[in-house]
Design a protein around this nucleic acid. Structure first.
Lengths: 224, 224
DNA sequence: GACTATAGGTGTACGGCGTACACTTGTCAA
DNA sequence: TTGACAAGTGTACGCCGTACACCTATAGTC
């Protein structure tokens, strides 16, 4: 056999490093995350990592591409609307699992999973009859919404109506008084009793956008 | 007079520090930005800053609130749709000027300008007849889109069709070959000649969303 | 105008970070 | 068995944020 004949610990590899990095960031958040902590987690000296990744930036690129790999890619020929919906929902879920990745999905150098996913999205739209420029627009709105929503969700940091109430109250305390902000005060009082749910919230906006895209598509004369 | 009788340099103040910080981040980007660089810029020793801000986090909170201050607040009673449109556009412009603020608008502790703006948005929607929960939804989609779009725009880093082509080519080189990604290849070839414009792109998605919100509003029985 | 409390600015130091560079060690093919 | 090369180590450097003790200029009181 050509592996696992090691003295004690298994040897490192690029993908092992990346996986461990994702796991560490998931647990400790992006603060706490450092090359040194990661090395420690792997029972290895910090510089050992540099035999497998060029530097921290490249490590992050790889980590982000792992997250992209967890996003459902539409198959070309799928019904565009339900394919887009599934992709968006799986993207949000991936970002909930790996919230450290939230500002990084569009910022890092694209890896293979990223390219594959984006190619599939664009392909699905084009084959569904979206003209080139409309497909670009459709793509842009959806991604802006998905990543923007993930940001919001991360910040608000509550999931259930109960949490929402708690968060609102914490805010109110920080601020001192909401007297000057009557409409924010309304949120603080009404949101807790409203059955707020992030998943439904995401779907509401997503469906609004998909409705809009459908309308734009319908409005196009079928010359193709 | 009770000020400006100083030996040489004017004295620091919280707002002076914040302004200088924004200016520095605008120039050098968020990389390059550090307490030590800022102190140097102000001709002062690093620790001097801590007499005016508690720590770097609080400094960032203040910087972000300056950006919020540059976003147009709707007046309650304004036509909701054009007020929302103006706010969204001014938000994008502010984020273009201060692109370091892009992942921070929703992440930092809210300052007064933030609260004022959000209160005004919510107020405008409520007074325009949006029921509470619909107003929350409307708010959520818009902000997700605005901040998500700003992210995208920052990353893509091109403004004109020419730049877009250049960027696409750079990407293609990095990747090696787009042969496996035919729909991305289409983007690389067609985008440059398409007259792509970020401002129009933003407006396309924004109007799609505002259309959708209008529809949702119309669909509500007027029981107040 | 002299006195003094205090707000503003300084200097030193510490522990953390990413990573360059020179080294030892373990592994596998010949 | 050997020797080349990949994997892991150790040390060191220059950055970072900031705690803490110190000095100093300023402004309000007499």
């Amino acid at each position: 056999m050509t592996q696992e004949t090691n003295t004690g610990r298994t040897r490192l590899s690029r993908s092992l490093v990346l996986q461990a990095a994702v796991a560490l960031a998931d647990e400790d958040g992006f603060e706490g995350f450092s090359m040194r902590r990661l090395a420690q987690e792997l029972g290895v000296v910090p510089m050992a990592l540099y035999k497998h990744v060029a530097n921290k930036d490249e490590l992050l690129d790889g980590m982000v591409d792992i997250v992209f790999g967890e996003i459902e890619s539409p198959s070309i020929g799928d019904d565009w609307r339900s394919a887009m919906r599934r992709r968006a929902i799986s993207a949000r879920e991936a970002l909930k699992r790996h919230s450290w990745a939230i500002g990084m999905m569009e910022t890092r150098n694209p890896g293979p999973a990223n390219l594959r996913n984006h190619n599939a999205v664009m392909g699905c739209l084009r084959e569904a009859g979206f003209p080139f420029e409309t497909a670009i627009h459709a793509y842009s709105v959806q991604d802006a919404y998905i990543y923007g929503f993930a940001q919001q969700e991360k910040t608000l940091g509550f999931q259930t109506p109960g949490d929402a109430g708690e968060a609102a109250q914490r805010r109110a305390q920080t601020i001192g008084s909401l007297d000057d902000y009557p409409y924010l005060a309304e949120i603080a009082t009404k949101l807790p009793e409203s059955g707020y749910d992030n998943t439904l919230e995401f779907a509401w906006g997503l469906d609004l956008i998909l409705d809009g895209l459908d309308r734009r598509l319908q409005a196009i004369p079928l010359t193709s």
